[in-house]
Write a protein that binds this DNA or RNA. Sequence first.
DNA 1: AATTCACCCAACCGCCCTTTT
DNA 2: GAAAAGGGCGGTTGGGTGAAT
Length: 262
Amino acid sequence: MGRSPCCEKAHTNKGAWTKEEDERLIAYIKAHGEGCWRSLPKAAGLLRCGKSCRLRWINYLRPDLKRGNFTEEEDELIIKLHSLLGNKWSLIAGRLPGRTDNEIKNYWNTHIRRKLLSRGIDPTTHRLMNEPTGTQKMTTICFAADDQEQKIKIKSELVETMSKEEKDHEIQERCPDLNLELRISPPHNQQNQLDHNQRANSLCFTCSLGIQNSKDCSCSSKNSNGNGCSNIISMNMNISGYDFLGLKNNGLVLDYRTLETK
DNA sequence: AATTCACCCAACCGCCCTTTT
DNA sequence: GAAAAGGGCGGTTGGGTGAAT
């Protein structure tokens, strides 16, 4: 069974919005707020599809939009977020205040793709384009480097053509790389001086991704107050003022749960 | 000056997911 | 539980604009 169209196409305008239409839409949303896009056009006196109104508002008319060129920092942030999230433009936009998913998507396709290609980086995989393809494999985040079961799982993913030595080396390469606590944290003596309250506020990696109470979550098991964790990422990196993307964060913690909010 | 080409970006389309009935 | 409705997302398109010829 097909779905009914979102609006009556025969009686709706298409194409570029006029100034008058913009003003009507702004006035209506100022008076009534966002929401119920289906009924909005009629209520606002617009001959537009509700979806079209929503898009126009979100991508162009919203007062909190930041217009103008992307900064170098925004460029790098987009690249790093894209390497983590792929074409999840709305999630990426969630980390760039004032930017829309459509704007970022367009910017990616027109500027950043070319920029990466000029650096010899594949914009889809974020790998060097001359990197041998024989070792390409699925990316796995390893939460416990000395976990034998995890090593076996990774080993099974590695390509058949690799020798045992290569596979072992690959495992050695992968797990330490993912032990973010060891790599990014301040020196050990500083580590020990972490304020107890800071620890109490930290989240494990799975919780930072918004996956609370999962089997990988170690928040509740490590601390008497139920908050500490062996996979502390956000708090430890925050000490140096850089989030786990390697970007200066001015003391703000990157919490993936905020990626959902726009 | 006219034409062609390349680029940019606003807007549309169709699908998917979530919520409501 | 199924169907419908609503909203959101990513891919694509097409018109406008400036540069190159």
